[in-house]
Amino acid sequence: MKVSEIVKALDLKVFSGSRGLEAEVSGGYVSDLLSDVMGNAEASQVWVTLQTHKNVMAVASLKDLAAVILVSGHRPDENTAAQSEEEGIPILGTGLSAFQVSGKLYELIGKK
């Protein structure tokens, strides 16, 4: 499934990095701890978090993640969005909580 299909199905806001919307998604990872994501997320996953600072994009880029989903109405910091543009890794947003959006994501892509 592509990032753009997830955006559509979950009605997500696209903050930045729209160049990466056609990337394939292999699964998801939910965490607000950067070392946890660094150690345990896998390439092409979408990362669900409430962290909004620039290091999120450093981790997303180093791990070749497909996209970042900010929960509970959080918005990316300005320099975070700028780096997302540069890397072509989308930052997406939702008013749903991490629990709610993860449940929906799991329905969509979790079984793969």
Binding site: L34, S35, D36, M38, G39, T49, Q51, H53
Partner: peptide
Amino acid sequence: MGFGAGMG
């Protein structure tokens, strides 16, 4: 900021 999990 999400650092300090002691996992590094």
